[in-house]
Structures are given as structure tokens and as C-alpha cells.
């Protein structure tokens, strides 16, 4: 096994006495597509918030490539190659879809580009290629607030991909996406991740998606890791089937 890109060690987090992480340690390795499943409110999104610097654990550490990033801001962590797509899409709602993309692309450019026009041929082409990847090419000139929820979700993922991350954290990437679009989106996403050598961690409730695309599954329950392993191993665990998947 390669060295972990991201490692969380002995995390403790609680909100009003409810434990969201109770001495939890996880690691995600280069090239993995790690799924985190678990009941609502079990602390899955909290883990993403900690790993991206949005909240700080009461104790424990988060290491990126062996360097402690526990106290860094989301901005500093993003600049180290960690991107995030949110459960509720986080977009610039008053701006066009393509402007959302180009601003993300500009964020990775140098200081001088900050005073150049946002819309350059290179950025426009890159933005359109990514929008094409998630099936939003026809919506490029729409104001993003006018997109249906599923498309907003896709745009949020495309924005995260535009940052050219090494590690992508996805919070329920298929929620809000129609059943018809779900698997084509995941196929496109997986292809992009493989092509760009992006490691990914995703929180997901759709077990079909997890079974099909995750290389490893981690079951989170009440602030603890209940089970961990390959999808077939995890889904054959009777306790997981009963308490998380909802099948006896």
C-alpha cells in the first residue's frame, strides 16, 4: 500500500455533548476512491469539515502528505490540492455557470492573472471541457441560480474539479441528481478522476453507487467506524446491513 495522502489521527469532535467523532483514525491512499456511509447525523460531513479546515477537532490531527494541516484554513488546504464538493451546492448564484468555472480556474493561476480579464480563451476552453464532462455544456451561459438542483450539484462538482486537485472530497455527489443521470455522472466522474489521477473520498447514501464505484468503504456510526473494507466485504456484514443499509 502506498503512503496515505490524507490521514486523520485520533479525532475527537462533539456538538452539545453528541459525539461526531470519538477517537477516529482514517487514512486515504493515493488512487483510492474511499466511500463513507452511515446514518444521517452520524458525523460524516463533520469529517469532511475537519479535513478541509472548516472546523477544528477538540483533539487529534489531520495530516496531508505527512504534514499537519489541522489548524490550517480551508483556503490554505485548498491551495495544497484538496478540493471539495458540498452536500448543498456552494455556487456564485448571481454569476453565469461558466463564470463560476472560470473563477475556480483563475484561483489556481498566478497573481498577475488576477488583473487580466477573467474570460480568456484557455479558461473558456477548460471550463467548457469540464462542463461537458458533467453534462452542463448547454447551460454555460445561464445564471447559476436558475439551474435545477441536480444541475447545481453537477456544477459544484465541476467547480471542484477545476481546481485540479490531488484529493477530492465529495459530499453526497449523487443526491439531488435524477436517477437517470446518476450513473452517467458517476461514470464521467470516475473517468475524470482516473485520467487526472485524483484520489477521492466521498460520502454517499446511494448504496448502488457505493457498491459499484468505491474501492473501499468505511461505515461511520455514532462517531465511530463500525466497519471497513471492500464493498462486498462491508455489505455482507450483517450489522452493517441491518443498521446502515436497512436490510436485515
Amino acid at each position: 500500500m502506498t503512503h496515505p495522502i490524507l490521514e486523520a489521527r485520533s479525532l475527537h469532535v462533539s456538538f452539545n455533548g453528541v459525539k461526531a467523532a470519538d477517537d477516529v483514525s482514517i487514512a486515504i491512499h493515493d488512487g483510492e476512491f474511499l466511500a463513507i456511509i452511515g446514518p444521517n447525523g452520524s458525523g460524516k460531513t463533520t469529517l469532511l469539515n475537519i479535513c478541509t479546515g472548516y472546523i477544528r477537532p477538540r483533539s487529534g490531527n489531520v495530516l496531508l502528505d505527512g504534514h499537519d494541516i489541522t489548524r490550517l484554513s480551508p483556503r490554505a488546504i485548498a491551495r495544497r490540492g484538496v478540493a471539495r464538493a458540498f452536500q448543498i451546492p456552494q455556487l456564485f448564484s448571481a454569476q453565469r455557470v461558466i463564470d463560476n468555472m472560470m473563477l475556480a480556474l483563475a484561483g489556481t493561476d498566478g497573481l498577475w492573472s488576477a488583473v487580466q480579464p477573467l474570460e480568456t480563451a484557455r479558461r473558456r476552453d477548460e471550463a467548457r471541457a469540464l462542463l461537458d464532462l458533467v453534462g452542463l455544456a448547454d447551460d454555460a451561459d445561464r445564471i447559476s441560480s436558475t439551474l435545477p438542483e441536480g444541475h447545481r450539484k453537477l456544477l459544484d462538482i465541476a467547480v471542484a474539479l477545476a481546481l485540479k486537485p490531488r484529493l477530492l472530497l465529495l459530499d453526497e455527489p449523487t443526491s439531488g441528481v435524477s436517477a437517470l443521470e446518476r450513473f452517467p455522472l458517476m461514470e464521467a466522474l470516475m473517468a475524470a478522476l482516473r485520467q487526472r489521477r485524483i484520489t477521492a473520498l466521498f460520502v454517499e447514501h446511494d448504496m448502488d453507487v457505493v457498491a459499484r464505484y468505491a474501492s473501499r468503504v468505511l461505515v461511520w456510526n455514532a462517531g465511530n467506524i463500525m466497519a471497513e473494507g471492500r464493498p462486498d466485504e462491508v455489505f455482507s456484514n450483517a450489522q452493517v446491513r441491518q443498521r446502515v443499509v436497512g436490510v436485515a
Binding site: T52, S73, P74, R75, A78, R79, A83, R84, Q90, L91, F92, S93, A94, Q95, D99, M102, L103, A104, A106, G107, T108, L118, V159, L163
Partner: peptide, 18 residues
């Protein structure tokens, strides 16, 4: 554009590394 974006979504802007 980032300035306008502050108005609509400051969190996303930080997550873009801006």
C-alpha cells in the same frame, strides 16, 4: 468577479483558495 462572489458565497471563495 471574486468581489461579487463575496456577496453570494464567501465560503466557496475560500474553498477555491482565494
Amino acid at each position: 468577479h471574486a468581489l461579487s462572489a463575496v456577496h453570494t458565497n464567501e465560503i466557496r471563495l475560500e474553498y477555491l483558495g482565494i
